[in-house]
Design a protein around this nucleic acid. Sequence first.
DNA 1: CTTGAAGCTCTAGTTGCTAGAGCATGTATC
DNA 2: GATACATGCTCTAGCAACTAGAGCTTCAAG
Lengths: 140, 140
Amino acid sequence: MLTIGKLSQAAGVKVPTIRYYEQIGLLPEADRSSGNQRLYGQKTLERLCFVRHARDLGFPLDAIRELLRLADQPDMPCASADEIARRQLIAVKERIQRLQALQTELQRMVAQCAHGTISDCRVIDVLGNHDLCLHADHGH
Amino acid sequence: MLTIGKLSQAAGVKVPTIRYYEQIGLLPEADRSSGNQRLYGQKTLERLCFVRHARDLGFPLDAIRELLRLADQPDMPCASADEIARRQLIAVKERIQRLQALQTELQRMVAQCAHGTISDCRVIDVLGNHDLCLHADHGH
DNA sequence: CTTGAAGCTCTAGTTGCTAGAGCATGTATC
DNA sequence: GATACATGCTCTAGCAACTAGAGCTTCAAG
């Protein structure tokens, strides 16, 4: 049996975050020792690693909740899990695209800065005057 | 003079967001009409467009606050503005790199899914078993 | 048996807004 | 002038996904 600290180390998830996950129902309520301290078994460790990995991949907690629910039903078809992953993939692709546009813009701003005074600064200039952008529509 | 609604339309920033910006001191306190409604001039419109553009480029509000302060001092050297933009560029580059690693991982997961049952599902499998990742360290 | 680390609960803060309640004001029409 | 309706006002609370702190208890080592 693991204390919350050991579990934290083993899974690479901070102690308060584990308690938070319990609170929002992502992890089941932990068993307690005689002195009211949480005790965890192997199964929770695996579950927490699953959560952590999914978080690292950018899945929102709601999606993870759903994935955990699915993982508990090995005989169901996996279409739903696939669908969730696909959606996440699309979201990631979109964010990459957006960020790449921003990168271009920022690079242009920085490259054109002549290191003079603020009044000549391309950075301030471009920010204040949207027309100077390559892409007029990086908004959202 | 513009009401907050007109300003909102002109700058492409929602009304509550404008009030929020005023509240946190990003925009100065607005003049008021006889009936206590906010009234804005051209200068605030420009300032708000500046903020919006910077937000679109992903600058955090604190950085924008600093950039606005700099924009108000045209005779100062622009090194600080340049520095802020550079930092933002680095942050964007890092986020792109991270997202690209995630994209690879997600693509692999989705591609390997055989559309059978959950117990065979590669998506669930990989999430639960970090060793199946290409990059063992997409954590953070 | 004492000390210090680790655990507990609870509240509040973070970022950048967004939504709603419950009012007051402004404008267009009749 | 009355009425309707959009727009404005303030204030509080909520979102994700934690993080930090206060003030207390329990555990393990020496």
